[in-house]
Amino acid sequence: MVEKLLESVKKFFFLAFLVIAIPASIPIACAGDITVDVNGSEKYTSIQAAINESSNGDNIIVLSGVYIENLVIDKPLTIVSKTGDPTDVTIKAPLPDVVAVEIDANNTVFKGITITSYYKLGQDYGIVIMDNENVTVKNNIFTGCKKGITIIRSYNCTIEDNYMEGKKGGKGIDLYLAGNNLIRRNTITKSGGAIWEDYCEIGNVYHENNLSENWNGITLIHDSDNSLVYDNLIQGNENDGISISWADNNVIVNNWIIENGQGINIYDSKHNNISSNVVMDNTY
């Protein structure tokens, strides 16, 4: 019964994701490669300078090194470290009250890079995606960011295979008025809320994330309805493993929720399907 339910829910979310994603996809032709090297072997020593001179659909390939800059990506680009290893390329944001990487374009890919702060007290925001679709953020490292990835009014984005070590009182992945996003295989630790969903009525998918040693694991709050949460490891969080408040019609299935302050905390919410989870060794 549970397996059939999970399979049908997966198909529903996949079809919904596909139907919305197809019209939003824009064919991009004549993409070129632009190489950036902070050590001066290439034309560009700054990632932002390469972005400014690029055309829609270009690939910006970043060679190993430390880049001290805040980025604004305002056109559809792929920005990737040459080796694909995020420990080889670091963006040290020099301005703590400005977003380290601001993504303002649909169909953008950002992968294989470490984001941290030049400022000794840390970076307020790692990546912010606002009013966009089909953005992919993959295989990055976030350290010292109060908020790792913030998604606002954005849809059909994929956030996967990232590592985030946050700050107390902050959030790992923060979604606001966002829907049909896929959040999978991320590791989030030492944040205030590992995954926080607020006013997301359409729903999002959370799959195979490792959320450990945070204050809260997954929080669905304020009309955050219709999300699918499955196959996640939620362990050793100080407060709630999963918290559902004023949120309806979510599916919570096949998760490991262990050694948290409280396993699953539900407040003023209805029609949530919670089944086949392992909930054990929590204080409550």
Rank of each mutant, 00 (worst) to 15 (best):
V2T: 15
E3Q: 14
E3P: 10
K4G: 10
K4S: 14
E7L: 13
S8T: 12
S8P: 03
V9H: 11
K10T: 00
K11F: 02
F12Y: 08
V19T: 13
I20G: 11
I22M: 05
A24H: 10
A29Y: 11
G32M: 03
D33H: 00
D33I: 03
D33N: 12
I34T: 07
V38Y: 03
N39T: 08
G40P: 10
E42Y: 04
K43Y: 01
S46P: 07
I47N: 06
I47W: 09
N52Y: 15
S55L: 10
D58V: 02
N59W: 08
I60P: 11
I61R: 01
I61S: 00
L63T: 13
L63R: 14
S64V: 06
Y67H: 00
I68Q: 13
E69V: 12
N70K: 11
I73L: 00
K75N: 02
P76C: 05
L77R: 02
T78S: 05
I79N: 04
I79G: 07
V80Y: 07
S81M: 01
S81F: 01
G84A: 10
D85K: 14
T87Q: 12
D88W: 00
V89Y: 02
V89A: 05
K92S: 12
L95W: 13
L95T: 15
P96W: 15
V98E: 14
A100G: 14
E102C: 09
E102T: 05
I103E: 02
N106K: 02
N106V: 06
T108S: 00
F110C: 01
I113T: 10
I113L: 09
I115N: 04
I115M: 12
Y118W: 12
Y119I: 15
G122W: 13
G122H: 11
Q123T: 08
Y125K: 06
G126F: 07
V128E: 09
V128M: 11
M130H: 09
D131W: 03
V137G: 05
V137I: 15
K138N: 05
N140F: 01
F142W: 09
G144Q: 13
G144W: 06
K146V: 11
G148F: 04
G148Y: 04
I149A: 04
I151R: 02
I152S: 02
R153A: 06
Y155E: 13
N156W: 10
C157M: 08
I159S: 03
Y163W: 02
E165I: 05
E165S: 08
E165P: 02
G166L: 06
K167W: 02
K171R: 15
Y176V: 12
Y176S: 04
A178C: 08
G179R: 12
G179A: 08
G179F: 10
L182V: 13
I183D: 00
I183V: 12
R184Q: 05
R184S: 09
R185S: 08
T189P: 04
K190R: 12
E201Y: 15
N204S: 10
Y206P: 01
Y206M: 15
N210G: 03
E213N: 08
E213P: 00
N214F: 01
G217C: 06
I218A: 02
I218F: 02
D225N: 15
V229N: 03
D231K: 15
D231A: 07
I234Q: 01
E238Y: 09
S243I: 02
S245W: 13
S245T: 13
A247G: 13
D248R: 14
V253M: 14
I258G: 02
I258N: 07
G261I: 05
G261T: 03
N265V: 07
S276H: 14
V279E: 05
M280G: 07
N282Q: 04
